[in-house]
Each structure stands twice: as C-alpha cells, then as structure tokens.
C-alpha cells in the first residue's frame, strides 16, 4: 500500500459559518461533473475544481482548505474520508494537517454509481452484482443483484442496501445483511411504484417511497414514514436519524409554484426565493446549493443526531 500525501493545508482560519446563519461558500462554486457534489464528508465540505472533479476540501471546524492528492469524479464519503474506486482506488483521509491517500487494489469492473463508505467498510455496485468489504481487506465479496445505476449503495449498521431494478414495477430497495454467514439479498421496500434513493448513516437507513420518506433503524427494524413529496431531484441526506430532503411546495392559488426548499426532520431548513437544492447534512451543518453556489446553514442549537429521530418532521 502506498501512502501519498496531498497538497498542503491552506492557512487556518476560524470555523466556517455561525449558528443560525446561512453563508455562501466561495471557492467551492465550480460545478461538479456529478451534481451530487459538493457534499459533506463529516465536518468537511468536498468540492470541485474547474475540471468538475472533486479535488478540494474545506474544514468547517477550522476553515483549513486542502487539495486532495488525486481528484475523483464521484467518491464515496464518510466522516473525514473519501473512498475512490476504479483505476485509481484508495482512501483519502482528511486531516487539518493534510490529506493522505492510502492505495487500495484497483477496481477494474465498471461501477454503476459512486461507492459508499461508512469509514470502515466500502460498497459498490456493478453490473449484476453488489459488493461490500472492509476497507483494510484486499478481497471484495460480491453478491448477485440487478442494481440500477446512478443510485449509490448505502451502508448502515450491518446492512448494505441498494436500489434494484424492479422491471415494469419500478425500482425497489434491496438489502443484504452483512453479519450473516451466508447472506442473501432480499427486498427491503418493494411493490408498485418507485422505491429508491437509499442513504445510510450510523445504524440508520432512509429511502424514498411514493409520497413518503422512510427512516429505518437497522438494529430494531423500526421505521418511520414521513409523508413528504421528495426524491424528484436530489437524494435525501442522513446524519444519524436526522434526515433532510428537497421539497416541492404545493401549487399556489393559480397554479404558480414557489421554488424548491430543503426541510430537515429536526426542524432545520433552507428556504427562500429561488431553489435550494442538493442537501448534505452533518451535525449542525446543512450544505445546499442555489444554482451552482454552495451555501452552508448552521443550526442555531447543536442538534443531537441520535435523538433527532424523535423529532416531528
């Protein structure tokens, strides 16, 4: 394994943002090739350079800016960590002192979507199979499946979940229990309509169903359905049991509609004139975009991700 150290850290500044305030993040406003970025990797914002590839990171805690040792089009993100698969495969760890790349074995198989990582494991989707592995392992276990491309897989607790092509029935969400001896993929949310956009954080999974956002604790199987109309553009974002999502306002009195807004299950939101889109949530921070401009809203009160599940949407 090779260790490559990325570009040196920029001058340290103060923490980014302030409680109860939304600020634009300049320097991260290059449009990314994959619209799901910029996004939060824990307390870091990772964003793109002029080429549209993810190549920089900004620490929200200290204001330190980093250049990544290698750019990536669509890395998997976890707290302070990026997972790259493909011809250049590796794990980039973000630290105020710099970014370091730890090489992983190449993934020669074309992947269908960005990989997922929870910081300890990785997961990827390929044609007719899914794969999950511990990051330090050099062998990846694969399981037969028919994932739909573009939707990344999700890791939560001991569960790998992904969006499966349900044929004429629309997409379904499937899962694989990673703690079983000989696990077999099975549907997590199937049936008529489109079940998709599955995301994971800690032990929690969330996905979009027709007319609802479902949040499930993978340890207990307990699930909550939030009756929201989302999933029309960006996936929801999950931090612990706190979910944030894009929401289309109801049609106005004469069919007029306001812009898209972002709501979170703990009450944080991003609303206002224009469209607020592509939410990404970690702790008190909600990253979103208006046009190509990333904005950061910081919660007025430090939230509790685990307890936030109990909050009303």
């Amino acid at each position: 394994m090779a260790l490559i150290v990325g570009g040196g850290a920029g001058p340290a500044r103060a923490a980014v943002g302030a409680p109860g305030v939304a600020i634009p993040l300049h320097g991260l406003d290059h449009a990314c090739l994959d619209a799901r970025y910029p996004a939060l990797a824990g307390p870091w914002v990772v964003g793109c350079g002029p080429e549209g590839r993810v190549d920089r990171a900004l620490s929200l805690r200290t204001g330190v800016e980093l250049r990544l040792p290698v750019p990536a089009e669509a890395p998997g993100l976890a707290e302070g960590l990026l997972l790259l698969v493909g011809p250049v495969a590796g794990v980039i760890r973000l630290d105020e002192a710099g970014a370091t790349l730890l090489d992983l074995p190449q993934v020669r198989t074309p992947t269908l979507a960005p990989p997922a990582t929870d910081g300890a494991r990785g997961a990827l989707l390929a044609e007719d199979r899914v794969s999950a592995w511990a990051l330090e392992d050099r062998v990846r276990t694969t399981h037969p499946a028919h994932p739909v491309g573009w939707y990344p897989p999700a890791l939560a607790g001991q569960v790998l979940a992904w969006v499966e092509d349900g044929g004429t029935d629309g997409e379904d969400v499937w899962m694989l229990p990673l703690d079983e001896q000989d696990p077999a993929p099975r549907p997590l949310s199937a049936g008529p309509g489109h079940q998709r956009h599955v995301v994971g954080s800690g032990d929690t999974l969330a996905w979009v169903e027709p007319g609802a956002l479902v949040i499930q604790d993978t340890r207990t199987g307990e699930a909550r359905r939030l009756p929201v109309d989302t999933g029309f553009s960006a996936p929801p974002t999950l931090w612990g049991q706190v979910a944030c999502w894009e929401e289309r306002p109801a049609p106005g009195p004469e069919g007029a509609r306001d812009g898209v807004d972002i709501r979170c299950s703990d009450g944080l939101d991003a609303a206002g004139p224009g469209h607020q889109r592509w939410p990404s949530r970690f702790g008190p921070w909600l990253l979103y975009r208006e046009g190509d401009q990333p904005w950061l809203r910081t919660a007025a009160d430090p939230p509790d991700g685990a307890a936030a599940g109990a909050l009303a949407p």
């Binding site: 090739l33 994959d34 619209a35 491309g149 573009w150 489109h194 998709r196 999933g231 029309f232 553009s233 960006a234 289309r248 509609r257 812009g259 898209v260 469209h275």
Partner: peptide, 20 residues
Amino acid sequence: LLTQATLIHQQGGTRVYRLD
C-alpha cells in the same frame, strides 16, 4: 423539470427524467 418531472439518472451533462 423541478416541478413536473423526477430525475432518475444523470451522467455528465445528460439527465434522464421520468415525467410525473
């Protein structure tokens, strides 16, 4: 697109939508 269609795939600059 934001109000009447659902994004179901995007690669590079090309997007696929399902009409609501």
